[in-house]
Nucleic acid binder design. Structure first.
Length: 255
DNA sequence: ATGGTCGGCAACCGA
């Protein structure tokens, strides 16, 4: 079973990238973040002949999540339990007996901002969400744009970025606390190499200089992680009309 | 050098 994640930064702007990648790679599940489309404008027609079902929740301009699958999608819900639920940031579903939680975690703006406090709270609330709905012994995947680089190896310049909202100690501790539920970082379980990035800022020519970050993740509970056989990063083709600043991250499970 | 570039969507916000 192949499970993948991609931050689209507008699904409509990158529809050919997504349909093309699906056709070529045929994952069982593809989770998307930052669809940036309201539900009544979701580009369903583009996927009509793709062989994929899709569930989604969006809003105007920002955020938005979607789950694609070539199998039946059941037990669908959106958002955290308490207010603000942030439905366009969390999609949950069960596919082939695996529970999928697809999140677009708030980016956090700057360390001294209200938005960063909101981000840290979001991790706390997500930790409670996992505790109250699931057990670490079940087949559960938490994936998406988590907006955290877990370790120094996961950013291009750890010394320079230590105060950043996606790398500072507070946010890494917040991530660790959620992972303590019983999640394994599937990519790192298979690859310990440095410079394995999933995101490059559009600004400052960061892709050319490989000034990247590993912010997109596939976390799996131990029983599931033990069955993972590979995990890899596909860069979106820069030759595409509209390339993306994020990659497709895929995990393969022997299920 | 504390900038830069995208996307949405119509003046800036968010990343």
């Amino acid at each position: 079973m192949k499970i993948a994640t991609f931050n689209a930064n507008s699904l409509r702007a990158r529809i050919e990238i997504v349909t093309g990648w699906l056709a070529e790679n045929r994952p069982d599940v593809l989770c998307i973040q930052e669809t940036k489309v309201q539900d009544h404008d979701f580009p369903l027609e583009a996927f009509e002949n793709s062989g994929y079902n899709v569930v989604f929740r969006g809003q105007k301009k920002y955020n938005g999540v979607a789950i694609f699958s070539n199998s039946r999608i059941s037990d669908v819900s959106f958002g955290l339990d308490d207010e603000p639920k942030d439905e366009p940031r969390l999609a949950k579903a069960v596919i082939k007996g695996v529970t999928i939680v697809n999140t677009y975690i708030p980016q956090g703006f700057e360390p001294d901002s209200e938005k960063f406090r909101y981000k840290l709270d979001w991790f706390e609330r997500l930790g409670r969400y996992f505790q109250s709905h699931f057990k670490p012994t079940e087949k559960l995947v938490w994936l998406g744009d988590l907006n955290v680089a877990p370790e120094a190896i996961d950013v291009h310049s750890p010394e320079d970025l230590f105060g950043h909202v996606c790398f500072c100690q507070e946010v890494r501790d917040a991530l660790k606390k959620v992972l303590a539920f019983g999640f394994v970082d599937v990519f790192r379980a298979h690859c310990t190499e440095p410079e394995q990035y999933t995101f490059w800022d559009y600004r400052a020519n960061s892709l050319r200089r490989n000034r990247g970050w590993r912010l997109d993740h596939i976390m799996a509970t131990k029983p599931l992680a033990q069955r993972s056989t590979a995990c890899w990063i596909d860069k979106t083709p820069r030759s595409a009309q509209r390339p993306s600043d994020h990659t497709f991250l895929t995990a393969q499970f022997d299920l």
